[in-house]
């Protein structure tokens, strides 16, 4: 790896970074979770591990019945 910054340099960077973070705008947990919930609701019908498949044939990992594909 290339040269690593000195301890003082690293700490300065951290102070600058923490200052930026200290002033960031934050949203309440309830609002954050509402958004995550909405995302899940909007995408649930395409989430095959939850809703499965309309027919088992649509599942690319259904149990192997490949015999005729060897032709």
């Amino acid at each position: 790896m290339e040269s690593t910054p000195s301890v003082v340099q690293q700490q300065r960077m951290e102070v600058d970074q923490l200052r930026r973070e200290a002033t960031m705008k934050r949203i309440p947990v309830s609002q954050a979770v509402e958004d995550i919930k909405r995302y899940a609701m909007d995408h649930m019908m395409q989430d095959h591990l939850i809703v499965g498949f309309a027919s088992e044939k649509a599942n690319p990992f259904r149990e192997k019945t490949w015999s005729c594909e060897v032709l």
């Binding site: 200052r19 200290a22 934050r26 309440p28 947990v29």
Partner: peptide
């Protein structure tokens, strides 16, 4: 610098703590 870092981290932790109006399970 170490003192500044600790001070800022404490401040950030305090700000974060204020946001816990509900739990995820309550919202859901």
């Amino acid at each position: 610098l170490q003192r500044d870092i600790e001070h800022l981290k404490r401040k950030i932790a305090e700000e974060r703590a204020k946001l816990c109006d509900k739990t995820t399970a309550q919202v859901s």
